[in-house]
Design a protein around this nucleic acid. Structure first.
Lengths: 244, 244
DNA sequence: ACCTGAACACCGTTCAAGT
DNA sequence: ACCTGAACACCGTTCAAGT
């Protein structure tokens, strides 16, 4: 009789329903004879991703690293999509971030965002795989709790605190994500970029062409710091209750 | 003797070198007998994407729409990657945006960003395919020229203007991108989300659990407007020369 | 000269057959 | 009962054979 999706037989990997089902089913999953575990699959997948690139992340290749066939992986995960979701959450949770010491909420927000950015940049390979759907896994939840704690302690009301947290987190992930496929820019790539901007004059885009040098010089580190500083300036106007 | 990549035989689709090579080779590409053109391929691809989803965007399926075989597409594009890059730039360029009327740079920035967001939301299917690499195609370049024009006219120095443009554009695209895989949230999905947040109490995350309702209620429209307002507040502090 | 069917080297996933 | 080789239904891309 239900017309919602609560009884959908197969929730999409990464969705709230999927994570919930996962908590419920959290059976210890009796040790298999062959010694293959979810942990080993995730480790193997991360290695494939880092060493061979995104295109190489196939069930067959991961299985190869574990000296078995692709079919064997299906005893531990239901699909390749699940593997990706679990891998992303796993990597997001890796940094045993030492608690952030700072007296000021602005400083704590900035350091938290920089920590996340630094961590993501160290794991560039997984960044393109991150979607909002995956940012509700256990690792993301732990990060949320910590940020929420200090924003509330600093006098923000819960609604504003959550909005600030979401905005900064999404901004940080997104900045890394949009730059991740460009990779580290070589001098040659930068000069190609300058040439491309300069060439736009031929299509009547004189301003883009005139400032080709500045566009080519644009650094995503700078953009991140600039945007983060602007956001935090903006948040001060929205503080509640005002510090008067 | 060159140790840079300028003579790399096959630049990656979407890279500056690739776009540059495309401008140079801009031969009119003599009409084929069968009437298949790049234009028709892009239109067919967009239809496949919108009607059948991301997984259906295969060379075979696009070719089917044009009553031919996959091999025939390779006379017009070099690879599937090229198709995706061209499709994304094509869609970004679609809106014949009527020039934005506003007296204030803040208002113009806000309307430009909202226009872009609205346009992307109307073409959700292509959003996950956007990367920074594609945002240097001809359509993006045209948008850049327009934004740059009014920021410079409003007294920003070129470096700041470019930074503001890049930050707002990336923020806007990224916000849509992170939410795009969640799709329109149904009441059921929202209640699942609330349940997931509420369940975090069992893992010691009491703040996340206590505010489950607020997290589940979080709207990406609100986040977008909140972040955009905060960014623009922040930009005012960085204006150069100051309006004194 | 142009076009494309058929083939190649892959995929994710399933399941019958083995242990 | 558990595991997995082999098969199925797909991919993107190539190229020899056709027109």
């Amino acid at each position: 009789m239900s017309d919602n999706a609560d009884d959908d037989p197969a929730p999409a990997p990464g969705s709230a329903r999927w994570w919930l089902a996962r908590e419920t089913d959290a059976r210890p999953s009796r040790q298999r004879a062959d010694g293959i575990t979810l942990r080993r699959i995730l480790d193997a997948a991360l290695l494939v991703l880092q060493e061979e690139g995104a295109d190489a992340l196939t069930m067959r290749r991961v299985a190869e690293r574990l000296d078995t066939g692709a079919a064997s992986l299906y005893r531990h995960i239901a699909s390749r999509d699940e593997l990706v979701v679990l891998l992303v959450d796993d990597v997001i949770g890796l940094p045993k971030s030492n608690p952030i010491q700072a007296t000021d909420w602005r400083q704590r927000l900035i350091r938290t965002a920089r920590n996340l950015r630094g961590h993501l940049l160290q794991h560039r390979a997984v960044v393109p795989l991150i979607t909002a759907a995956q940012m509700i896994g256990p690792s993301s939840m732990r990060g949320r709790e910590a940020v929420l704690r200090y924003l509330l302690a600093d006098g923000f009301d819960p609604e504003t605190a959550i909005r600030i947290h979401m905005t900064v987190t999404h901004f940080t992930v997104a900045t890394v994500q949009l730059e991740s496929r460009l990779g580290a820019r070589t001098a040659s790539e930068r000069s190609q970029l300058r040439a491309l901007f300069a060439a736009q004059g031929e299509h009547g885009l004189s301003l883009v062409s005139d400032h080709a040098e500045l566009f080519a010089a644009h650094e995503s580190d700078t953009e991140f710091e600039f945007g983060l500083a602007a956001l935090i300036h903006g948040f001060e106007h929205l503080r509640d209750p005002p510090n008067a």
